[in-house]
């Protein structure tokens, strides 16, 4: 099971990323757990300073919203090696 975390402080872009990731996972039937992390200590533990950040299997793969196609590629790469 792949875990996908979206680190965000509740800004509009963060919620958009969360939405897009959830849609991608459902539409593609990916086996993945999507979590939205808003607690600051947890966010900071990943060392990011800009939100949102996308974390797949505990690895930060992008900051900001890189666009749906790239998000899809990042998740796909982790799920289907």
């Amino acid at each position: 099971m792949t875990t996908i975390k979206i680190l965000g402080t509740g800004c509009p872009t963060c919620r958009r990323l969360l939405d897009d990731v959830q849609k991608l996972v459902i539409n593609n039937n990916w086996m993945a757990n999507v979590e939205y992390i808003t607690e600051l200590p947890a966010i900071m533990a990943y060392g990011v300073m800009s939100t949102p950040a996308l974390v797949i299997n505990d690895k930060v793969v992008s900051v900001g919203h890189p666009g749906v196609p790239k998000v899809a590629r990042l998740i796909k790469d982790a799920i289907e090696p």
Binding site: P41, A45, G47, V60, V61
Partner: peptide, 24 residues
């Protein structure tokens, strides 16, 4: 609480953006 937070190592595996990416 700010002083207690431990900031993790920055470990973002970002590829260097191309000009196409920058324009986009």
């Amino acid at each position: 609480f700010v002083w207690q937070i431990k900031v993790g190592q920055v470990a973002i595996d970002q590829e260097k953006p191309t000009w196409t990416n920058r324009f986009k």
